[in-house]
Computed example of a mutant assay.
Amino acid sequence: MSFAEYGGPEVLRLVDVEEPHAGPGQVRIAVRAAGVNPVDWRIREGQMQRFHPIELPSGVGQDAAGVVDEVGEGVEGIAVGDHVFGGGVHTYAEFAVLSAWARVPEGLTFQEAAGYPSVMETALRVIREVGVEAGQTLLVSGAAGGVGSAVLQVARDCGIAVIGTASAANQDYLRGLGALATTYGEGWVDRVRQLGRVDAALDLAGSGVIRELVELTGDAGKVISIADPSAPESGARFSNTAGSMSEALAETVRLISRGGLHIPIEKSYPLADAAAAHIDSQAGHTRGRRVLVV
Rank of each mutant, 00 (worst) to 15 (best):
V36W: 05
E212I: 00
P232Y: 05
E212C: 01
G61A: 06
R103V: 10
V89R: 15
L152K: 09
G74C: 03
D203G: 04
Q282P: 01
G206F: 01
V198S: 11
L14R: 15
T122C: 07
E5C: 03
E94M: 02
Y92I: 00
G235S: 08
G135V: 04
E94R: 15
R289D: 02
V68M: 05
R28C: 02
A34L: 06
L56S: 13
T286A: 10
I78M: 05
L195K: 13
A220F: 00
G35V: 00
I226L: 07
E10G: 08
M120N: 13
T122D: 10
A236G: 03
R258H: 09
L177P: 04
H285C: 01
F110T: 11
H285K: 13
V71E: 08
A272S: 14
A272D: 11
E121N: 13
R103M: 11
T182I: 01
E247H: 13
P53N: 12
G107S: 08
S281T: 12
G23I: 10
M48E: 09
P264C: 09
L213D: 06
A134F: 07
F238K: 08
R42I: 00
G206A: 05
A242M: 14
E233T: 02
D273Y: 06
T252Q: 10
E45Q: 15
A179W: 08
V84C: 11
V126Y: 10
L204V: 11
G7L: 04
V80E: 13
D219W: 05
A277K: 06
A275I: 08
D203R: 07
V68S: 06
S118N: 14
V36M: 03
F51A: 10
G66D: 10
G142V: 03
G25V: 02
V294L: 11
V294A: 15
F51Q: 10
Y116W: 09
T109E: 03
F110A: 12
Q153L: 01
G164T: 11
V36D: 01
V162S: 13
I43Y: 00
E19Q: 13
T109A: 06
D203T: 02
E76Q: 14
A100F: 01
P53D: 12
R258D: 08
P117K: 12
R211I: 00
A274S: 12
E251Q: 12
A30P: 00
I256C: 04
E19M: 07
G196S: 09
A242W: 08
H83M: 06
V71M: 08
T252F: 07
K222Q: 15
Y269M: 07
S149Q: 05
I29A: 12
G23L: 09
I256R: 15
G142W: 02
G115V: 01
G87S: 15
R44G: 06
I210D: 02
G196N: 11
L138P: 12
A100V: 02
R287W: 03
R290S: 09
G87M: 13
Q62C: 10
L139H: 12
R42L: 06
S281K: 07
V67W: 03
L152P: 06
L202P: 12
G59T: 01
A166R: 11
